[in-house]
Design a protein around this nucleic acid. Sequence first.
DNA 1: GAAGATGATTTTCA
DNA 2: TGAAAATCATCTTC
Length: 452
Amino acid sequence: MDDQQRLMQIQSNVAAMNNSVMGQQQGYENMQPTAPTDPDRKQEIGDILQQIMTITDQSLDEAQARWVSGKHTLNCHRMKPALFSVLCEIKEKTVLSIRNTQEEEPPDPQLMRLDNMLIAEGVAGPEKGGGSSAAANATAAASGGQPDGAIEHSDYRAKLAQIRQIYHTELEKYEQACNEFTTHVVNLLREQSRTRPIAPKEIERMVGIIRKKFSAIEMQLKQSTCEAVMILRSRFLDARRKRRNFSKQATEVLNEYFYSHLSNPYPSEEAKEELARKCSITVSQISNWFGNKRIRYKKNIGKAQEEANMYAAKAARAASGPPTPHQDPSTPQSTGGYGIGSSQGGMEAGMYMNLNGDNYQGGDNSVNALRHVISQSGGYTPDSVASSAGMFDPHLQQMTGYRPVVIPPPGTGGLDVEEDKHEENWAGYIPQMNQDDEYSDSNDEDSPNKTK
DNA sequence: GAAGATGATTTTCA
DNA sequence: TGAAAATCATCTTC
């Protein structure tokens, strides 16, 4: 469609509109000093339209320049009130559809999720110790409450703080831009309301649209921030998996406890704490270690027996006094450090002392002590874990007065160790001595040392 | 680099 | 909820 045709179409539309305007114009007639005749009016409208067409062909800058200069002329034009009235009428009709679209939308669940996550991670919301509380929580969870892995911790905190800062800077920028743009648009609309009917509701709606657009951008920012936090978190948690073996000393301490409590290797919370303190590891690591140890002990009882012998021998050596030149100086001298003063451990630690003090006179030689323990245990026969630790020798009992842990057959009740819910479960794996055989030799083949 | 050891995590169960 | 069992992932040793 060329300009000429467009012009003709507009003219015919305006002519039709004009007829309706004429009816309303009666009210304005007093404002018009002279009512122009029909041909004159048509000519005038034609001129206006011609001007409009010219404007449409202009660049924005040109149009604006003309607009500024011509605004006053337009406002003072005698046709303005009539045209304004028509526009008001049209507006009235269209505003209905606007109202329909102005329904309040419920908050976006996705946005709520993101907000909640950012608050939980300490990125959004009030600053909780520099956004480090989440980091602290994560670290505490990772380390079982011990402040180990401090490097990772501070790294995590630093990175999280960085994310938080970027997030807030960007958010501030977006909010500022949003406010500036909204103000600009509102001013523009108010300005335009002088030449076309703009209801306050419409301005509100426009503001709403702008805010919605900006909140979509904000959502992207929140999403990116969440992703960054998740990546940081996963890296941090992955690093947690990088384990380190416990120190030799810690392993010694744990093994000593385990084999000296073989009848019930379930340390109480207090004992765990004590062990944790001694080994410089966490309570949960202690729990892990004992869980693994029990399982692996059951699975490989043969090796466990050797280990039990070894620790029994060590205990014997330690109890027999300071190392002689023949003794291995590297061997730790600790025995049942936890037990002394505690119910089970004290008894069993005492047992080692009795074993050496009473039954092994002059036995300050480690090799002899070891031989003695092994001989007491009846060697490394697979069925004699009890003896392997030198713990259940009836002759020893007689001589020392020490009464070893006796696990009665299920149902007979009574244990020397603290009764607990594990005894039945573990009983099948611990060195057992039938009470009828109390004074029989530990390497007696009838000895019902039960292994799985 | 393979194999075994070992600490941590996950799943299952009582 | 804690422990057993299975499994994973890393470390250590050869």
